[in-house]
Simulated assay, not measured.
Amino acid sequence: MDITAAVARGADAPLAFETVTLEDPRADEVLVRIVATGVCHTDLVTKSVFPAELPIVLGHEGSGIVEQVGSAVTDVRPGDRVLLTYSSCGDCSRCTSGLPSYCENFVILNTSGGRADFTSPLSIDGTRVMGAFFGQSSFATHALVSRRNVVVVDRDTDLVTYAPFGCGVQTGAGAVANVMRPRPGDSVVIFGVGGVGMSALLAARALDVENVVAVDLSAERLAVAKELGASTVIDGAAEDVVAQVHAATGGGATFALDTTALNPVIATALQALAPMGTLVLVGLGEPTMDLEIGHLTGNGKAVRGCIEGSCDPQEFIPQLIAWHRAGKFPIEKVIRTYPFWEINQAVHDAESGSTIKPVLVL
């Protein structure tokens, strides 16, 4: 079938709406009409590195309505409302242990530009277009996804507000809920309160953590963080960030989250921890980092990586929805919606930081 997609043709070119041919579903695939899709930092990073000769359809925070299912899909039906998340194989030891975000085939399934067999479901005039980004490529009117990408939700679910739950929101919230697992008396400091950091803040508050510190360069974002329950907000450009965190937490935070992937910020986050504290890293950016080993061996601190919130989306996304419906996770306060046709404006606003979490509405 022919669909309309926002095609990336190089780092510096704007996304262009083009008619793209989408294959029919294979036996284990589901055809979804996209209703909304978030714009994630990973989309921006990928666009910046994909060469112009390899056009790709990005987007991996989709939501929509099922239109068709493959012959092997028995528990998803046309008309179902769904949220889309990352892809996993379901067969490796990590998937079968309940850790699909660490799937042994994660890179192939999510960032190779195609399916597990390296084919793409997308083409233009018979020429391959890189697709199946995070198993979705949801910057389009329709997406062809595997069954494991699909989280079926109730028919009254708000598909616009919940669209980003499949990546950015579960990444931040899951880092707190599934990796840190803080108790109410613990303290959490978050470096970078964009969409991921705000989601982490909301998760900490949903878990009744009262001492949550937000660090960012944007006064506007810090104001929103304060509104959402941060007990202390700190200008990341200040010379005494570590001292301010220690003062706010009584000697250092129990947990720190870095969303920036910037070496100086990571070093600051490690220093901001109390002895025996844990730093969780979720950002994509600098490939290496410098650490003072003494912070680890001398104080028992730990550094832990986390991808996609270390969660099984089939279990964690319903938990996030339950928190939201109970008034404990007001993610709508950081979302700004854009018509699909304004995707380049949404990308610009995400890059500039003027919008915390853009969501495109089709």
Rank of each mutant, 00 (worst) to 15 (best):
G90Q: 13
V76R: 15
A72D: 15
R77K: 13
G70E: 06
S71R: 12
A52P: 03
R81Y: 12
L54M: 15
G59M: 00
L83C: 02
H60P: 02
V66A: 03
T74L: 03
I65P: 08
C89F: 04
A52N: 07
I56Y: 05
P55Q: 06
L84Q: 01
V73D: 11
P78V: 08
L58S: 05
A72G: 03
C89E: 12
L58T: 05
P55H: 09
V76S: 02
S87G: 10
V69D: 06
E61C: 00
D75A: 07
R77I: 06
D80R: 08
V69K: 04
G59C: 00
A72L: 07
S87V: 03
V69A: 01
G59N: 00
R81L: 04
Q68E: 02
L54N: 14
V82L: 06
S71A: 12
G70P: 03
S63W: 04
H60K: 07
T85P: 08
D80T: 14
D80Q: 14
G79Q: 11
V66Y: 06
P55Y: 12
H60V: 01
P78N: 04
Q68K: 09
R94Y: 15
S63R: 15
A52W: 11
G79I: 12
S87M: 14
T74P: 01
Q68S: 06
S87Y: 10
G64W: 04
H60A: 01
E53M: 02
G70R: 05
G79M: 15
P55C: 05
G62S: 09
C92V: 04
V82S: 02
L84D: 00
V73A: 05
I56Q: 13
V57Y: 00
L54T: 03
G70H: 01
S93G: 04
I65C: 11
G70V: 11
Y86E: 09
V82F: 12
V76W: 12
S71H: 07
L58I: 00
Y86I: 13
S88D: 02
T74V: 06
D91H: 15
